[in-house]
């Protein structure tokens, strides 16, 4: 078997006495959707932040496509195809929806040290951005200001921006949080379609979505991986049921 696309080895991060990430090791294989579930405060977002380069781990290594990327910053990782979406929507509010996506296309298409030609007239940027908006079902709102979107639309835009970076591995931090029933169903459908192009690591509270989408599930409790395996195996793991799933309605 070939090496995994992303290999996390012995990752640790502490805040004072609190071990937010405690010796986490896991693999994400090319082409899979790997879900991370766990109760609130288990350190899921902190883990993603360390994988995306926003946060430096205290120790441990992150290996992506065979390279040690632990020391690289977020921008460098994105350029290697390792992108993330944010749980707390992070948009450019005074940019239009299209521009929010086009600037992400711009980041990988040629130099941005161009000073005179209006960027908004660049067909190449806008066309690719439109494609991403189509993917997430936002093409109708392209010319609106991002700050004026509804909450659900912002979640969709967040995703379109991540897609515009042409990720090979996409880290999704609760992409369904705050979306309505219909929007959530649309997004789940979208992730299913994306699966053939993009590997995904998915943090999600919506268990229906997790068990419908994920090839493998890792359970994070108090910063540690409590279990890892197929959705069925995890669902039936006694330790997991006790630690976590017992609190929730299991589908």
């Amino acid at each position: 078997m070939t090496d995994a696309l992303l290999q996390v080895r012995n990752l640790r991060k502490t805040y004072g006495a609190l071990k937010v990430t405690n010796d986490v090791s896991l693999d994400v294989h090319e082409g899979e959707i790997h879900a991370i579930i766990g109760p609130n405060g288990a350190g899921k977002t902190t883990l993603i932040s360390q994988l995306s380069g926003q946060l430096r781990p205290d120790s441990g290594t992150v290996i992506y496509t065979g390279q040690d990327i632990t020391a690289l910053d977020m921008a460098a990782r994105v350029r290697m195809g390792l992108a993330r979406s944010f749980q707390l929507t992070t948009l450019l509010p005074s940019f239009t929806v299209l521009e929010n996506v086009a600037v992400a296309v711009q980041a990988r298409e040629g130099s941005s040290f161009r000073f005179f030609r209006p960027a908004s007239t660049e067909r190449a940027l806008n066309d690719q951005a439109m494609e991403c908006l189509n993917d997430v079902g936002l093409s109708g709102t392209a010319s609106r200001l991002a700050g004026a979107l509804s909450h659900g639309e912002k979640r969709q835009l967040e995703l379109a921006i991540a897609l515009a970076t042409r990720p090979r591995l996409l880290l999704l931090d609760e992409p369904l949080a705050g979306t309505g029933h219909e929007e959530a169903a649309q997004l789940v459908d979208l992730f299913g379609r994306l699966k053939s192009r993009v590997t995904m690591m998915l943090i999600e509270h919506d268990m229906n979505a997790v068990f419908a989408l994920a090839d493998r599930v890792s359970v994070l409790v108090y910063g540690e991986i409590a279990a890892c395996g197929t959705p069925d195996a995890v669902r039936n793991d006694a330790k997991v049921r006790a630690a976590y799933l017992g609190e929730e309605e299991v589908a």
Binding site: Q54, F95, V103, F113, F115, R117
Partner: peptide
């Protein structure tokens, strides 16, 4: 006027709006 609407200007104003977002799409 041209500068602020160019690719460069777009990155600059984007950073004003959210430096984190700009880093997350690959800009330093």
């Amino acid at each position: 006027y041209l500068l602020t609407r160019s690719r460069f200007g777009r990155v600059l104003t984007g950073t004003r709006e959210s430096a984190l977002r700009m880093q997350a799409i690959g800009f330093r």
